[in-house]
Each structure stands twice: as structure tokens, then as C-alpha cells.
């Protein structure tokens, strides 16, 4: 790994975040539209991404969320009224409301601790010093959410991608730095075997997303699109079996005349999932495409997709 490449990317991301400050005039944080599907009603992800989250326009404040099996364990890193750094611990269980089953919600009390060990000091047990506030979180996509402190102003947050190449074609409208998936991934699938069946089918296929291809709109008649071919390798032969795409129509990009639509199409012979013989198209809200994970569910077949970037995290 090239040390300078890492640092350069990180610094560039930080500069881009600072460059977004004028947007503060309109909203706090990146409101990433949920396009292509009704995210409020269709559950396409099981949990938000784990990692550092924040509003890229407000550097210096971070929420580290780590989700395991619907349990969220997090830290809020901010400041006391004096300006001193402070952190608050919170734990919550992610839940779905009946009237908006596509959204994941969490409610938690922030806990402040004091009098623990300082650096180089003898061990000391910290004491709970207070409950300074209440945090509520709502996620409509795996990599986009909103939080509020004590019911106050909504702040949009996204995960910090410190070391991922970005596909920036739709950055202005979507306000989410789309990680470029080029590289090795394993795609996994889960589905019931049929109506009333108890058997759960699982399957996987590994392969590589190729480099990004860009098609520019031409006078509004052709889509403005980006896509990546997904290919598996077997016996030394490379077999393209699908593609990940984001497409919009319009006079260049943006503005567009219809919403951006992203998806993952797969077509290949599969003994366990014969649906793939005829092709399956997984809808992908833009911010379900993460740097280390891509998740979705095909509403037609009911097949759940969870893709892991190999060796990434």
C-alpha cells in the first residue's frame, strides 16, 4: 500500500467536505434522496453500516456506530459548552415501525462518564456523570440517516469513507460520495424455497467488478449512466454475469428528468437459484451502495443480496 496515496485521498476527502460548507445555508448535512424505490415502505437493508458517521459539512463531530445483530453500540464525539472534547456512550436496538417498515429507527440516551483513568495513570473505574441528552436516529438507506438531539434539528449523516475511490458523476444531486466498487467481491443470496416452505436457500458467487464505464447523455435522448461489469472466473475463463449500474435521463447530468435509478443485474446458471437463469434485477437505492457492502432485496423473487468487498474490512 502506498502511504502517500492513503494520505492524499484522506486529505482530498476532508477538503471536499470543507468545500461543501456553503450548502449549510440550505440544510444540515447531505440529504441523499432515496431513488428508484419507496425506501420508507420497502425494507432493503438489515442494518446501517458500521463505522464513523458524520455530516461531512461539519467536521470535528463524529458518531461511531457499531451494529451487531440489530444491537447498536455507539459513541458520540463532540464538545462540552466550554469547548473541551467530550464523548457520550449510547446503546440501542434497531427497530422498524409498522407504518414505515423500510426505515430503521433507534432511540438512545447519551451517557457521560468521568473520573476514569488518564493516560499513564493508575486504573480507575469511571463513574456515570450524567445523561446529557437523547439521540434519535432514522436510516432510510444503509449509508444515509438522520439524527436529532433531544428532538432538535435533523442532521443528515453518512459514513466516512476514508480510503475508497469515488464515482463522482452524480455527486451534485445525490450528495453522497458513491464508492467505486471496482475490485473483488463475494455476492451472497438468501431466500425461502417457496410459499410455505421451511427450507432457506443460500448461495454465493465471487468475482470482480471491472472498471467504471461512463455514458454521457446526448441531447436528452440517451441515458447518462455509469456501470461496472461483474465477472466470475472459473477454470481460468472469465465469465461476465452481471452489472451494477446507475442511470438517469436528461440534458446532461444533472439536472435529470427522472430520478436516478441504480441496480444490480445478474444472469447466470445457478442450481440453487433458478431465478438467475432468466435474470434478476436488484433495486439499489443510491446509498445502499457502500464501500465494503452492497445490500438489497429483489421484490419479485424475494431473494436477499448481501455483497462483501473481499479483504476490505
Amino acid at each position: 500500500m502506498n502511504h502517500h496515496r492513503f494520505l492524499t485521498r484522506f486529505l482530498v476527502l476532508m477538503l471536499l467536505a470543507l468545500a461543501g460548507l456553503p450548502a449549510l445555508l440550505f440544510a444540515r448535512g447531505p440529504d441523499v434522496p432515496c431513488t428508484g424505490i419507496d425506501c420508507e415502505q420497502v425494507a432493503l437493508f438489515d442494518m446501517p453500516a458500521s463505522g464513523f458517521w458524520g455530516n461531512p459539512q461539519e467536521v470535528g463531530i463524529g458518531i461511531h456506530m457499531y451494529v451487531q445483530n440489530e444491537v447498536m453500540f455507539g459513541m458520540y464525539y463532540g464538545y462540552a459548552p466550554t469547548g473541551a472534547p467530550v464523548w457520550y456512550l449510547f446503546t440501542a436496538r434497531l427497530q422498524r415501525a409498522d407504518d414505515s417498515p423500510g426505515l430503521l429507527r433507534a432511540e438512545a440516551t447519551l451517557e457521560e462518564y468521568r473520573n476514569g483513568s488518564c493516560i499513564g495513570c493508575a486504573p480507575a473505574a469511571p463513574e456515570q456523570a450524567g445523561l446529557p441528552g437523547h439521540i434519535s436516529l432514522v436510516f432510510d438507506q444503509r449509508n444515509h440517516g438522520i439524527y436529532r438531539i433531544d428532538g432538535g434539528e435533523a442532521i443528515h449523516i453518512v459514513p466516512l469513507h476514508a480510503n475508497s475511490a469515488v464515482a463522482g458523476e452524480f455527486r451534485d444531486t445525490m450528495r453522497y460520495a458513491l464508492p467505486d466498487p471496482e475490485g473483488a467481491w463475494v455476492l451472497t443470496f438468501k431466500a425461502e424455497s417457496g410459499a410455505g416452505a421451511w427450507f432457506e436457500r443460500v448461495g454465493s458467487i465471487s468475482g470482480v467488478f471491472g472498471s467504471r464505464e461512463v455514458r454521457d447523455a446526448q441531447g436528452g435522448h440517451e441515458p447518462h449512466a455509469i456501470d461496472w461489469t461483474f465477472a466470475s472466473v472459473s477454470s481460468g475463463e472469465v465469465f461476465p454475469i452481471g452489472r451494477l449500474f446507475c442511470t438517469t435521463y436528461g440534458e446532461g447530468s444533472p439536472p435529470s428528468t427522472i430520478d436516478l435509478e441504480c441496480g444490480l443485474e445478474l444472469e447466470y446458471p445457478s442450481g440453487m437459484f433458478p431465478e438467475f437463469d432468466g435474470g434478476v434485477r436488484f433495486p439499489l437505492p443510491y446509498a445502499n451502495i457502500g464501500d465494503g457492502r452492497i445490500v438489497s432485496k429483489d421484490p419479485v423473487s424475494g431473494i436477499r443480496l448481501e455483497a462483501f468487498r473481499i479483504g476490505y474490512d
Binding site: 500500500m1 464525539y77 476514569g116 483513568s117 488518564c118 465494503g292 474490512d313
Partner: peptide, 29 residues
């Protein structure tokens, strides 16, 4: 106790946050 790290690793790059306390017992990161 009460001290630790928030760690996120992305393709060989690590972002970490140390959380602990000052000598006066105030939180620190």
C-alpha cells in the same frame, strides 16, 4: 476501564478515535 478505541478499517487504512479521561477525570478523545 472506560478507556478504549473506536476503530474503522478500510482497505488497509485505519481511522481511530482514542477515548479516555484527563488527569482531572474529564472525558477526552
Amino acid at each position: 476501564p472506560g478507556t478504549g478505541l473506536s476503530i474503522t478499517v478500510q482497505d488497509g487504512f485505519l481511522v481511530g478515535m482514542y477515548y479516555g479521561f484527563t488527569p482531572t477525570g474529564a472525558p477526552l478523545w
